[in-house]
């Protein structure tokens, strides 16, 4: 324990950076996909069309009652079976994340949509805008804006969760750190470094959320 060697970080930086890129890229794409699909689910749920809202509600409740790691596994094995050819760990993980996160984002967007006053919808309707135009131009922009802090918070959680992709042997930042730690025999240094990197990224995210919140409340 006595002699730390932090040079190991320096020398494996390119390798770690590749891992971090994968983590960030997966997070980014999953957030976009999750919000788009989540918004559609929220709209379906609030549509007032019984079969639609039932399907959406069932989907959301189902997904929210299984662990993410299981969903990642499922899609790794199921997608190739379903389409008859392998699609690679990255895409299967991405699909899993989008479908999983969509359930959470849909609950956030649902709350956001409900936070927009009924009078806004009436205003839109009274000028002759149709349902989709009202959602697109009046309701969703306000819902989205009201929910930005929570959407970002969910994004931070998502970023941490990307470390689970080691189960389908993707080399994200966490996995890359572990590999270096074990091959170089520098467990303490590497796990300390990984913790610092996660902390810096997630803490910056939290600060962003805080400044967004205070900016919105003025």
């Amino acid at each position: 324990m006595a002699d730390f060697d932090f040079n190991v970080i320096w020398s494996s930086l390119p390798f770690l950076w590749q891992g971090l890129q994968l983590s960030l890229w997966l997070t980014f794409l999953s957030i976009i996909g999750g919000i788009v699909l989540g918004t559609l689910l929220a709209l379906a749920r609030l549509s007032g069309i019984l079969p639609l809202s039932l399907i959406a509600a069932t989907y959301v409740n189902l997904i929210r009652s299984v662990p993410l790691i299981l969903v990642i596994f499922w899609f790794f094995f199921l997608v190739p079976l379903a389409i008859g050819r392998p699609i690679g760990s990255f895409y299967s993980a991405l699909i899993a994340f989008v479908l999983f996160e969509a359930a959470y984002y849909s609950e956030i967007m649902r709350a956001g949509i409900q936070s927009v006053k009924q009078g806004q919808v009436h205003a839109g309707q009274s000028t002759g805008l149709n349902y989709w135009q009202i959602q697109r131009y009046v309701v969703l922009p306000q819902a989205f804006r009201n929910m930005i802090p929570i959407l970002v918070t969910q994004g931070i959680i998502l970023f941490q969760d990307t470390s689970l992709v080691f189960v389908v042997s993707l080399r994200d930042f966490m996995t890359a750190s572990s590999i270096v730690a074990r091959t170089e025999g520098r467990l303490v240094e590497m796990y300390l470094f990984a913790a610092v990197v996660y902390f810096v990224i997630c803490f910056s995210g939290s600060m962003l959320v805080r400044s967004l919140k205070s900016r919105m409340s003025t």
Binding site: A123, Q125, G128
Partner: peptide, 21 residues
């Protein structure tokens, strides 16, 4: 055709309901 009908009738609300964004 309610959307077409509504586009021909103006409505003003107690709380204005301008789009804040």
């Amino acid at each position: 055709n309610l959307t077409a009908l509504r586009s021909r009738i103006g409505m003003v609300f107690q709380h204005f309901e301008l789009y804040p964004h």
